[in-house]
Amino acid sequence: MKLLVLGGTEFVGRAVVEEALSRGAEVTVFHRGRHKAPPGVTALLGDRTAPGGLTGLSEGTWDLVIDTWSAAPSAVGATARLLKGRIGRYAYVSSRSVYPQPVPSTLDETGPVIEASPEAEDVGYPEAKRGGELAVVETFGEDSLLLRCGLVLGPGENVGRLPWWLRRIARAGRVPAPGPRDLGVQYIDARDLAGWTLDAAEAGLTGPYNISSPVGHCTMGDILDACVEVTGSDADLCWVGPDTIAAAGIQPWTDLPLWLPPGELHETMHRGNVAKAVSAGLRCRPVRDTVADTWAWLQRLGGPAPQRADRPRLGLDPAMERALLSRAALTSQ
């Protein structure tokens, strides 16, 4: 396979590149040069947001392009039009955010999607992803593969969700663990996403697919217990209920990464319908492997983990953590 990855130097894009190289593919990455390209690829430089920024893609043919773009849909459209006739299939890494919120757990890929424009410039994340989908389909039609991902974790994560929990638990002490302990968490390891995408492209699959682990794959307890185990920490996980967390003014998802209390938002993020992708061969590695490999990657870094500039830093402020633990102790008396 001749593969073109738009991006390819960080997290999901890099996972795709590494998986493709392991399969013997000939890989080209097109990126802005802010991060070093993986070894073994042909690197083309360019900025999709700048005038003339696509010049590096004006020549060449590939069997498949995989695009991880999350900003202006107009950039996706411009790229797709430039590559038309020189690409066999266009795979776009989208998001389950394209569905109107909240999303019922029964909703599959045939459900309604939000309004968006393929020519939009400055829009929010859901509109950017839906606009990107429209831009790809407008040019490539039935040769489009749309990957509507949920939460993505694994080595290389540059949003700071699982890395925050690992580093906090590694510091040991009493750690507030948002419950219930058996509350389900749905995610996809970036490496499983990469492997399935390449398999799907080789099999000629097209259209939209919701991509995440099946419901029941793991719980909040599974993740945090694995964090304790792989870090070798003697941290004391103090399970705290949703009501206590809310009363303390602590925000789900941002102050406590990965976690959403039971309700509509939890159903939207952690109970998505992924039956179509599973029936098409999606397999998810055990949660412990994702946690252990992410910790090993953090250890190799030896410094701060990469952080996307367009995403806020996540995690619980130490003062708020102490207040939450105190509140939890009082409510348990």
Rank of each mutant, 00 (worst) to 15 (best):
L3N: 08
L3H: 08
L6H: 10
G13F: 02
G13D: 05
V16M: 08
A25R: 02
T28W: 04
R32D: 04
G33Q: 04
A37W: 00
G40C: 05
A43S: 13
A43T: 13
D47W: 03
T49A: 15
A50L: 14
A50E: 15
G53S: 04
L54A: 12
E59M: 09
W62I: 04
W62V: 03
V65F: 06
V65I: 14
V65A: 14
T68R: 00
T68Y: 00
S70P: 14
P73D: 14
A75I: 04
R81Y: 03
L82H: 09
K84N: 03
I87Q: 08
Y92G: 09
Y92I: 11
Y92N: 09
S94T: 01
S94W: 01
S97V: 05
V98R: 03
Y99G: 07
Q101D: 08
P104D: 09
S105Y: 09
P112F: 11
V113D: 05
P118F: 04
V123Q: 06
Y125R: 02
A128P: 15
K129T: 13
R130Y: 06
V136A: 12
L146H: 03
G150M: 00
G154D: 15
E157Y: 00
N158E: 12
W165S: 01
L166D: 03
R168H: 08
I169H: 05
I169D: 02
I169N: 04
I169S: 05
R174I: 08
A177Y: 15
A177D: 11
A177I: 13
P180F: 13
P180E: 07
R181C: 01
Y187H: 01
I188C: 00
D189Y: 01
R191T: 08
L193P: 00
G195H: 06
W196E: 10
W196G: 06
A201Y: 07
L205N: 10
G207L: 14
P208G: 09
V215I: 12
G216D: 06
D222T: 05
A226I: 08
C227P: 00
C227V: 02
V230C: 01
D234K: 13
A235I: 01
D236M: 01
W239V: 04
A247R: 15
A248W: 11
A248I: 14
Q251T: 15
Q251S: 15
Q251K: 14
P252N: 09
P252G: 10
W253P: 00
W253Q: 10
D255T: 09
L256A: 05
L258S: 01
P261N: 11
G272D: 03
V274W: 10
S279G: 07
L282H: 12
R285H: 06
R285Y: 03
P286S: 09
V287C: 07
V287Y: 00
D293T: 15
T294N: 10
W297A: 06
L298V: 10
R300F: 02
D310H: 13
R311V: 15
E321W: 13
L330C: 05
L330P: 00
Q333Y: 08
